[in-house]
Nucleic acid binder design. Structure first.
Length: 269
DNA sequence: CTAGTGCCCTGCCGGC
DNA sequence: TGCCGGCAGGGCACTA
C-alpha cells in the first residue's frame, strides 16, 4: 500500500515523463474518486507546463507554470500507469503530454485529486497540521519526546498520526517498532529517550531501504513505469503472523481499531 | 483537548 | 463450480 516510500517512487517515475512537459489533456473519466474531482481541473491544467514534482507526507505534488499545484493521494490501491495499453474502468484520470499518456488507476477509489494555488499550498487543510517529514531534520528523539509527552495512547497509534510524523502507515510503523524493539502497545509518553533514539533511527532506515528498493508494496502496487509484478516482501514482521522474527521469537498479530498490528512479543517490550 | 470507533470502496482469497 | 464473509487501510467524521 502506498506509504511514503511508494509515493516517493511514484513521484520519481512521474518526474521522468512530466517534468517540463506541456499537458495537452487532463480529463477525469468519472465525477469523483474519494472526493469529487475539482470542477476546473481540466480547464486550469490543460495547456499548462509542468514545472516540478514533489511529495509531502503521502501526497504527490505536480506544479505547473500557471501557478497551480495538483495534489494527488493514492489512497490504498492507487497508482499511476504510464502509457497503458488500454484504458480500463479503474483509470479515473487521464493526463497526456505530447509524448505520453498517463492514467491514475485506483480500483478502491480511496485516492483523490485536489488543485490548489502553489503559493497557498501551506494553507491546504491536510498540510496545515502535518508533522515533520521523517527523513528530514525535523524528526529527532528530542522532537518525539516533546510531541509524545504525556500521551497515553499506544505508540503505534501515535506514529500513524500524521500530525506527529508525516507519511508513516501501518507497514512501516510495524517494521520500525520491531527494529527498535518497542511494543506497539507501549504508552507513547513512556518510551524512554534511548528508545526514541532507536525508534527514529529505525524509522529512517526502514524508509530509506524501501525507497532504495524502489518502493515496497503489498500485492497490488506497481511501479509507475508501467512495469507490473513489482513486489517487495522482505518484511521482518508485517504479514508474517506465526513466522519467526529475526530475534528467534514468533511474530504475532493483534487487531486494534479493526487494523492489524504485527509484532514480536519476544523482542518488543 | 485526547482517545477510540466506524465508514468509505473493490478485489482477492479461503472455506464450504 | 459458485457463493459468502473477511480482510486490506488512509483519512476523516463522529462520539464520549
Amino acid at each position: 500500500m502506498p506509504e511514503l516510500p511508494e509515493v516517493e517512487t511514484t513521484v520519481a517515475g512521474l518526474r521522468a515523463v512530466l517534468e517540463d512537459a506541456p499537458l495537452t489533456l487532463v480529463e477525469p473519466r468519472r465525477a469523483d474518486m474519494r472526493f469529487p474531482f475539482p470542477a476546473d481541473l481540466r480547464q486550469r491544467l490543460t495547456g499548462a507546463t509542468v514545472t516540478g514534482l514533489g511529495r509531502r507526507a503521502k501526497y504527490g505534488l505536480i506544479e505547473t507554470d500557471r501557478g497551480d499545484t495538483m495534489i494527488f493521494h493514492l489512497g490504498m490501491s492507487g497508482r499511476w500507469r504510464i502509457d497503458p495499453s488500454e484504458i480500463g474502468k479503474h483509470d479515473h484520470l487521464i493526463v497526456e503530454t505530447p509524448r505520453h499518456r498517463l492514467a491514475l488507476h485506483d480500483p478502491r477509489r480511496f485516492g483523490f485529486v485536489h488543485l490548489v494555488e502553489s503559493a497557498a499550498i501551506d494553507a491546504y487543510p491536510a498540510f496545515a497540521a502535518l508533522g515533520p517529514e521523517p527523513l528530514g531534520d525535523g524528526l529527532t528523539a528530542e522532537y518525539l519526546a516533546q510531541a509524545l509527552k504525556g500521551r497515553v495512547a499506544p505508540i503505534k497509534a501515535m506514529l500513524l498520526d500524521q500530525r506527529i510524523v508525516a507519511g508513516l502507515g501501518n507497514i512501516y510503523v510495524c517494521e520500525a517498532l520491531n527494529i527498535a524493539g518497542i511494543s506497539p502497545t507501549r504508552e507513547a509518553g513512556k518510551v524512554s529517550k534511548p528508545g526514541l533514539r532507536k525508534l527514529v533511527d529505525a524509522i529512517r532506515s526502514v524508509l530509506r531501504a524501501a525507497i532504495l528498493a524502489g518502493g515496497s508494496t503489498l500485492r497490488d502496487y506497481a511501479r509507475p513505469d508501467g512495469e507490473l509484478g513489482y513486489f517487495a516482501k522482505d518484511w521482518r514482521v508485517y504479514g508474517r503472523e506465526g513466522e519467526p522474527c529475526p530475534c528467534g521469537g514468533t511474530v504475532r498479530r493483534r487487531i486494534d481499531s479493526g487494523r492489524s498490528t504485527f509484532y514480536c512479543p519476544s523482542c518488543q517490550k
